[in-house]
Design a protein around this nucleic acid. Structure first.
Length: 188
DNA sequence: TCGCCGATATTC
DNA sequence: AATATCGGCGAG
């Protein structure tokens, strides 16, 4: 578990696929399998930590496993997990989950009955899981929000690699990873 | 089903 | 002025 997060960011982004993200909230437990991630690296113009450390991107410079929650477009939130060594501003964006537990609660939070629409996007999964800004700077291995290795009987297909979604810089970098044929990713 | 567009706050 | 998004809308 330790080396999972301290490895280079590309490896972490790939290795997190299949892991389970679990949130034990006051409203109940929700959980899902990570099926889509993106890597954001040093020297990458799309990375929030590209220029310098700031109040917003500070969690990216935390030790591996530090949670980075930020607001986007004024109305949505996304969650990242910091990677690499402390003071290196890199992270993995969680983009989609395959819902496994607390689906009723997720549906209630998301105001939809479509399972495929619960966690198929970075803003969606944050809402469905009850992830909030207060988790910023927490650590993923020491929080109500945590990760567990894939269940022994969970078989997933190979990892596909593409360019990232929704960015206007670093558009050619192959830093998006998802499980082939998984119906819960953010886009085809 | 696809593509366009507005919402809305924080950062640059 | 730009943004690591989403849901609603209208056209096909």
């Amino acid at each position: 578990m330790n080396t999972l997060l301290t490895a280079d960011t590309i490896s972490v982004a790939k290795n997190l696929l299949g892991y389970r993200l679990v949130h034990e909230s006051d409203e109940g437990i929700t959980a899902g399998i990570i099926v889509e991630t993106e890597a954001y690296l040093q020297g990458d113009p799309a990375c929030h930590a590209y220029r310098k450390k700031s109040v917003r991107n500070a969690p990216m410079f935390g030790k591996a496993g530090t949670i980075y929650v930020y607001q986007i477009y004024g109305m949505h939130f996304c969650i990242n997990i910091a990677t690499n060594q402390e003071d290196i501003g890199e992270a993995v964006l969680i983009r989609a989950l395959e819902p496994t537990e607390g689906i009723d609660l997720m549906a209630q939070r998301r105001k939809t009955d479509s399972i495929k629409n619960l966690c198929s996007g970075p803003g969606k999964l944050v809402q469905a899981m009850g992830i909030h800004k207060g988790m910023n700077h927490w650590h993923i291995l020491n929080s109500d929000l945590t990760i567990y290795p894939p269940l022994s009987d969970y078989q997933y297909s190979e990892i596909f690699t593409t360019t990232r979604i929704g960015i206007t810089q670093g558009v050619d970098l192959p830093y998006r990873f998802y499980l082939k044929d998984n119906p819960f990713i953010s886009r085809k």
